[in-house]
Each structure stands twice: as C-alpha cells, then as structure tokens.
C-alpha cells in the first residue's frame, strides 16, 4: 500500500501542565486506506505515548472516537484520511469541557439522558410469562430510526443551541426520549412531557439542523425534535379542549 506523510495537528491539553489547549504537529506516514483514527493510533504507538484519546470498536458503533476534524465533528474511525489535505487538524469535540487532549467530559450528557427517562414505562409492568408483546413492522418503523443513536456526541459538538444554552437537553437525548414516546409498547409519554417541553427541552431547539448534518448514523435528531414539538403542541391542545369540554 502506497505510503506518504501527512501533518496531523493534534490539540493537546494536560491540566497538570498546560493553562490552555495547544496544538502539536506530528508527521505521520499514512496509508491510503487509513481512517483518521489510525493516524492517531500511529502517533500513540510510535511517536508520542502521552497522547490521550478514546477509541474502541473501530467499526463506527461504540461511539467513543468522536472528534473535531478540520473543524467538523466526525467519527474518526470511519472518517477517511484521504478526505483531507496534507495537514489535518484533530481537536476534541466542541461544546464539551476538555478533560485532556482529545478526551471530553460526558457527565452532563449522561445526566440529561437519565433525566428524560429513556426506558419503557407502563402502568402495569409486563411479566415474562406473558410472552413477547406484539408489534407490527409498521409500529417498529415508527421509532426504529431514532433508536440508532450511538451516543457519539457529534450532534452536541455541532449544535449552536448547545453552545449558547448549556441546559439544553440536546439532540441525542431528546431523540432518544422521543424514540420511547413513539414505541407502541410504551405508556410513558406523559411522564416525559414536563421535562421535554420545559426549560431546555424541545422548544429550545431553533432547528439549525446541524445535528442531522453531522450524525454518522442517519438518526436525524433534528427531525425527532421537531416531531416532538408538534406532538407536544397537539397533546397540549388536546388537553385544553378536553378540559374545556369537561368544564362545560
């Protein structure tokens, strides 16, 4: 395989030594079919073992290796190096505090995800003896797309609302909540409604559509959030009408 070198400019930051992130350049002999991650692993193994980055599955499903590559959030294990010129800038995901080098802090996301109750809620729990619930292929298709999120956080790094409003629950978490609301087996939409339509909920989204643009799994969180807005407005309107009727 043909080899040539590229300059990989990596953002470095060690809180024990650095006041602020800085850029460090590495000259990496790359192969034609390499992904960005392979260049980082080359640096780690052969040039500088002090570089810290997260990665694992290297097949675009574990969601560990999201980074900003030349300013755009990318899953580095599926992003071909050949898409870039002779100098490639790799930085930690934007919109997240940086723990070290390319490693960002995800605690905030996990709190937001948990707050949205991303699990099946039922008035009465099903027992295993009842067997599997029936769900038609059409009912499955109602939410399947939004269940494909790998939590890679590219959408948070791209979202201008996340940048300005730290309490915004954000694309991936809201899409996951909406996925459960759409699931024919779930009855928890009402319990998710307050947080979904509250401060930092779906109505904070101004539909920049950036999350959908950068999503490597075609989840389209922007679509989920707009659908959730519509569903919330409709359910609010319905409850209003029902109340009025009940009152009269």
């Amino acid at each position: 395989m043909a080899e040539h070198t590229k300059i990989i400019a990596v953002t470095r930051f060690d809180p024990e030594r650095d006041d602020a992130p800085r850029s460090q350049e590495y000259e990496v002999p790359v192969q034609e079919d390499w992904k960005v991650l392979e260049a980082l692993n080359y640096i780690k193994d052969h040039l500088d073992p002090t570089l810290s980055h997260r990665w694992s599955c290297r097949m675009a499903v574990c969601g560990s290796c999201g980074m900003n590559v030349n300013g755009e959030p990318k899953l580095t294990c599926r992003e071909p190096l050949s898409n870039y010129g002779e100098r490639v800038e790799v930085a930690p995901l934007a919109n997240f505090p940086v723990v070290r080098d390319l490693v960002v802090e995800l605690e905030g996301f996990l709190e937001k995800l948990g707050a949205l109750k991303p699990w099946i809620m039922l008035a009465k729990q099903r027992a295993p003896e009842e067997g599997a619930t029936r769900q038609s292929p059409a009912e499955l298709a109602d939410f399947k797309q939004f269940s494909m999120c790998i939590n890679c956080m590219l959408c948070y790094a791209a979202c201008p609302v996340v940048a300005n409003e730290p309490d915004f629950l954000g694309p991936a978490a809201l899409a996951t909540a909406h996925r459960y609301n759409l699931d024919s087996r779930d009855e928890g939409a009402a319990q998710r409604a307050e947080i979904m339509r509250g401060e930092g909920g779906v109505f904070s989204c101004s539909y920049a559509n950036e999350c959908a643009e950068v999503c490597p799994k075609n989840v389209d969180p922007a679509g989920a959030i707009q659908q959730a807005k519509l569903a919330n407005v409709l359910s609010w309107a319905r409850s209003f009408v029902v109340r009025r009727r009940a009152a009269s």
């Binding site: 099946i120 729990q125 295993p128 779930d186």
Partner: peptide, 21 residues
C-alpha cells in the same frame, strides 16, 4: 424468558408481519 424481558424493556427486535418476533 431473557429475550422476552429484553423485548419488554424496549429492544427493537425485528418482527414478522403478524407482529411476533
């Protein structure tokens, strides 16, 4: 039983036309 539990927890198992797993 274990796979049914996962179904109850929301695992999006692929379905036959009649809605069975």
């Amino acid at each position: 039983e274990e796979l049914v539990r996962l179904e109850h927890w929301g695992c999006p198992w692929s379905r036959n036309d009649d809605g069975t797993v």
